[in-house]
């Protein structure tokens, strides 16, 4: 069983057991345009919710990616380093950034569900 949540900063986290896979939303990749560079966290890094964790850059913009929840990074999507275009092609799939072992599942309650996120971006489009 898996469940997807979003943050107001346009990150998503797909939760499977105690592992969350995180990336940026389709809306975010559209807004950024061609992504040229990502900086990803090292596996093993322990972070608190809302810590700055990664950076994503397009030609004319840079955005920080924050930890949607607290936990430990278990894996980074190293393929993005050489092929950042994957984020544009498949933001919700192959363009994932990192996986995190969630230390406090209660924090997921702070996040948006799909409907709430869609309402949020409807106002921003």
């Amino acid at each position: 069983m898996s469940e997807i949540y979003y943050t107001e900063d346009h990150e998503w986290i797909l939760v499977e057991g105690d592992i969350g896979t995180c990336g940026i939303s389709e809306f975010a990749q559209e807004q950024l345009g061609d992504i040229v560079y990502v900086e990803l966290p090292e596996p093993g890094k322990v972070v608190a919710q809302n810590d700055e964790l990664a950076v994503v850059e397009s030609v004319k913009a840079a955005s920080e990616i924050y930890a949607p929840v607290s936990g430990e990074i278990t894996e980074s999507n190293d393929e993005l380093v050489d092929e950042p275009g994957k984020i544009n092609e498949d933001a919700m799939g192959d363009g994932w950034f990192f996986k995190i072992r969630i230390s406090d599942a209660k924090e997921l309650e702070d996040l948006l569900d799909k409907a709430a996120y869609e309402a949020l971006i409807a106002g921003q489009r």
Binding site: Y37, V59, P84, G85
Partner: peptide, 9 residues
């Protein structure tokens, strides 16, 4: 127009 994406990637 020059391809700025290629230059940065």
């Amino acid at each position: 127009r020059l391809n700025e994406t290629q230059a940065a990637r």
